[in-house]
Design a protein around this nucleic acid. Structure first.
Lengths: 247, 247
DNA sequence: GTAACTTTGTGTTTTAAAACATAAAAGGTA
DNA sequence: TACCTTTTATGTTTTAAAACACAAAGTTAC
């Protein structure tokens, strides 16, 4: 897949790459880069390609051949899977700086899920062949991926039980908690930093859009949250956690 | 956790270990061993401990500290998670020779699920500290785990969609297909090689035991399968696959 | 071999969530 | 501005699956 490079003029494109690389290299969260030696860093800088995606634009689709390691630099990305009868399940949310799209390559499979930008996003790519070489020469990088994969697998297994066994209210409360843990709050420490459509909220918590809307209204009536369009404020997190646990 | 060693007399215990090691070392499915050099093989032989588990005996439980790589030599093992209201979800089935129990260690977490023997089973353990050392000295071993974790993660994501979106009949049909793919058939090429309680079948396909029984009876009435106690024969696999896809 | 317990089987009732049906807001566009 | 599309909201109906209830087979233990 050759992703949509929003060509934005040569100068500003170069600036963007520079800024993005700086961000990637300095971000302490992305421990991945701290384990590279200088030669590896040069190879990365030479191969790193920046792409911009518009709101709701697909990054890759289930069934395609995985070729790149994707690194979200700016924005928010969802990984999702189309199921039966037009229903969609959001599997994982990506924030900056996080890596994604490598699992299928490692498993020797085609993409098992799709990725799309939630909001305007900047993504860097690195050919997986290069990543593979780097892993072979750098055992810390191997451990980085072993660790990431292991954490994600645990998360997926937990999600299976949450989505199949909890009731609607529990699932939505859980989704709100996950969103707050993952993307955090605005400066007021209450407003979720992600503004998603009710439909996405529904696809995240395995319910229909109407039920997401209805249940959300219920939470408002119980004064657990307030809602202003897509702006959600968490008022009573402990109670939400309780409902998420089972209620 | 110190697992239950069914001490079976010194002589036969030694025989068992010898046989088990032979099996592990020769099994071509377990590519993991082919990548080791002689020194590594000696370290393994010295540390490898055999354990026997009775039918339904727990191997480890959610929340415990992971210390060992488990290798199923003989028998069948289920990995499962206790959810809300006494419900159980079977997450993965292990056959010989397969490895399990390493994810939590790699993720630096406690066990996220439990493991129990479906039937009398023989399991070998290796301290994860040793496995870690081996990975550091052997990049092919690192790739083995990256590959396994990646495949499992893809499977878990698929399972999320299957279990949340398919209807009861589809989920049970899917479970039967998975069982046949995973454990295979008896010599008649029809009878599933695994004999599980209806309750386990239900826990595998996210439904109540009564619904598993009822739906299974439905399949019998439609001549898709026959049932004789826990012995299930697949008569019409194509149709089962169709139902599993959506029916 | 009989009693106690567990597993399987089936019918009936209840319920949680989907499906359907509108309508009002909100957002985009000509 | 007016028009069209999408999103949000809420009420009503339908339905798939759980819950409940009981009986018959099978197992296990004594």
């Amino acid at each position: 897949m050759r992703p949509g490079v929003e060509s934005a003029g040569r100068k500003s494109q170069i600036d963007m790459i520079k800024k993005a690389l700086e961000k990637v290299m300095s971000e302490d969260m992305s421990e991945i880069w701290t384990v590279l030696n200088n030669e590896e860093k040069r190879r990365i800088i030479d191969s790193f390609v920046i792409h911009n995606f518009k709101k709701n634009q697909m990054i890759y689709a289930e069934g395609e051949e995985p070729e790149y390691l994707w690194c979200l630099l700016q924005g928010k990305v969802k990984k999702f899977k189309d199921g039966v009868g037009g229903r969609v399940q959001i599997l994982r949310l990506i924030r900056s700086v996080q890596y994604f799209g490598y699992r299928a390559y490692f498993a020797n499979e085609r993409y098992n899920s799709s990725a799309a930008a939630f909001e305007p996003s900047t993504v860097g790519t690195l050919p997986m062949t290069l990543v593979k070489d780097m892993i072979n020469n750098n055992r810390k990088l191997a451990w980085f991926f072993i660790h990431e994969l292991s954490r994600n697998l645990g998360g997926s297994d937990t999600k299976i039980v949450n989505l199949t066994q909890k009731h609607i209210r529990g699932r939505l409360a859980e989704a709100l908690i996950v969103l707050s843990d993952h993307y955090g709050f605005e400066d007021d420490n209450m407003t979720l930093k992600i503004y998603m459509a009710r439909e996405d909220l529904a696809n995240l918590s395995n319910m229909t859009t109407s039920n997401a809307i209805r249940t959300l209204s219920g939470f408002v009536a119980e004064k657990l949250i307030t809602v202003d369009g897509r702006r959600i404020r968490i008022l009573d997190e402990p109670q939400l956690r309780k409902i998420s646990k089972y209620g």
